[in-house]
């Protein structure tokens, strides 16, 4: 019997968007192009063109123990080369940003391998081998999971998720890593930790509010889809709440 994963409950557009992002068989719409060099600049872990630093020799040069698990789980490219572990962190505005921290972790766990995500209410960090990280970043920035105004790369000083937007529609950033130009383009002038870049990195134009509302993965009663409109989702949440309240972390239904 084949099993079709549900990924999540709900009948609303928000629930549908969440499922789309989580389903690895669903191809996310590509919204913009970003070069390899731009990704390297934004991450700020190595200089463009510099080789990847390693923390152990490539696996091919090592004497691997005879382990069935190692034969079963194929290493990622970064692990094969012995890359060091690096991170990227995103802050997502609650004003209909296309991805949200918890959703980001779910989606990444379904789509990527060899990652270690850390999820907080307003930001999400993911750690993995540097080579893999750059590949994953490409998907996270180029596709519909990113909006130049409401999602931003922030290694530190991340505050902005729950704040009102700036008057130009950008998510608040105390370090102003990206700026909205007069031509409507958003350009990063600092890397994710706040160090100025030698040249600005263009990440495209902010998406309009209609598109954002249709592609958002957060319920918002004022600017988006209210949670209470999705009865199936409410029912699911109430069930989880009841099970956890009654049985702690080992829920058993009668």
């Amino acid at each position: 019997m084949t099993r079709t994963p549900q990924y999540g409950p709900g009948t609303s557009v928000v629930a549908m968007n969440r499922r789309k992002q989580m389903d690895p068989n669903h191809t996310l719409t590509k919204m913009r192009n970003i070069t390899d060099e731009d990704i390297v600049l934004l991450l700020g872990h190595r200089a463009p063109g510099a080789s990847f630093k390693t923390m152990h020799p490539p696996l091919a040069e090592q004497q691997e123990p005879d382990c069935p698990m190692r034969q079963l789980v194929k290493p990622t490219e970064g692990a094969k080369h012995g890359d060091r572990v690096r991170y990227v962190q995103f802050a997502d505005s609650m004003f209909n940003a296309p991805c949200q921290p918890y959703q980001r972790t779910y989606a990444e766990m379904y789509r990527f391998r060899g990652i270690d995500p850390g999820t907080l209410s307003g930001r999400q960090i993911v750690e993995c081998r540097e080579r893999d990280l750059e590949q994953y970043c490409r998907l996270l920035i180029e596709t519909e999971m990113f909006d130049p105004a409401l999602v931003s790369l922030r290694g530190a000083t991340v505050h902005g998720h729950s704040l009102r937007l700036s008057e130009d529609g950008m998510q608040f950033d105390a370090l102003q890593r990206c700026v909205l130009g007069g031509d409507g383009m958003v350009r990063y002038v600092k890397d994710q930790i706040g160090l100025p870049l030698n040249r600005p990195v263009e990440v495209g134009k902010p998406l309009d509010s209609k598109w954002l509302k249709e592609h958002s993965t957060i319920f918002h009663s004022l600017v988006g889809t209210p949670l209470r409109d999705d009865r199936e989702y409410v029912e699911y949440l109430q069930r989880i709440h009841m099970l956890r309240t009654r049985y702690g972390f080992m829920p058993k239904e009668a």
């Binding site: 000083t157 370090l175 930790i193 706040g194």
Partner: peptide, 17 residues
């Protein structure tokens, strides 16, 4: 809006804004 970057590896550098 801080004068200097308050957290992270860039802590203490000027916050150009």
């Amino acid at each position: 809006i801080p004068l200097l970057v308050p957290y992270g590896p860039a802590r203490g550098t000027e916050n150009k804004t």
